[in-house]
Amino acid sequence: MSDTVLEASRLRVYYSTRRGPVKAVDGVSFELSRGETLGVVGETGCGKSTLGKSILGILPPRTTVEGTLRFLGKDLASLPREELRKIRGKEIALIFQDPMTRLDPLFTIEDHFVETIRAHEDVSKGEAIERAVKALASMGIPESRLKHYPHEFSGGMRQRIMIAMSLVMNPKLLIADEPTTSLDVIVEAQILEILEDLRRVYKMSLLLITHNLGIVAEVCDRLAVMYAGKFVELGGVRDVFRTPVHPYTQALLASTIHLESKELFSIDGLPPDLIDPPPACRFHPRCTYAQEICRTEEPAWVEYRPGHFAACHFGKDFL
């Protein structure tokens, strides 16, 4: 138990809109251990980014959050605002998908680092700069660029700056929300390598949100598949990749490109509207195996193998 860094149980996040609540995260439970990497995979708009932001508590105002989130045993919802702020950026850090827009264009890189460090620790500006130089150097960015503005860097460099800034406080948990999606393949490989090293060296836990199954296979220990605000499958990367239980996971794996077969498999239909999602099993309108029960009854979260869970009425048939 003491090894659990993050524990989410029955987490729900509803955004309020004019048309009604958007059920972006709808009853998600999982645990993340020290030094572990959990990949969260799903289509655009399935709620995976919301999941990341809800852990940090940076959701927009008037968003409803239910269920519990425990970080190192502390219930995040019960913490006072100031305590929560101190955790953000220091104990839990977040790397965003789009490094081009995440740095304030009017402030230099040095300003960003000094601000971040001094938000958490009472150190002199000089010492903060010293730490910034070290953090940037570990990402291959020279000290001479400290006084440069964000627009003077390339996308890959900005993402390395963002990573350096996330790591400067030595967080225990790093949430990476599609950290390489907007970057080219070579830079992507570099960034993934950096993330790998970090986890090995600092025993940091990593929640890696992505839609790229290749990255998951490369970097993660465990994998959660998210569909329409819910986890549909969760298990060790090897288990899930070899014997996926949920038809959605099967379809996702089938839709990756293989060299042998030139055909490209795609899932029919569109991801559901999260204001008015399909009843019972949310995947049933797009599922080739759907039966009457899938439209009327919500499937249970069943452990099919040790540590390998899925929510499908016909899960046994796919084992």
Binding site: I58, K90, F96, T101, D104, L106, A119
Partner: peptide, 27 residues
């Protein structure tokens, strides 16, 4: 105030006042 960099500033643990009066206001 709803820009990406303001959200990122909050994620870094920058206090709310500084987010509004420094980042959002200056921009």
């Amino acid at each position: 105030i709803s820009a990406d960099f303001t959200e990122a500033a909050r994620a870094r643990g920058v206090p709310g006042r500084a987010v509004v009066y420094k980042h959002a206001f200056k921009n």
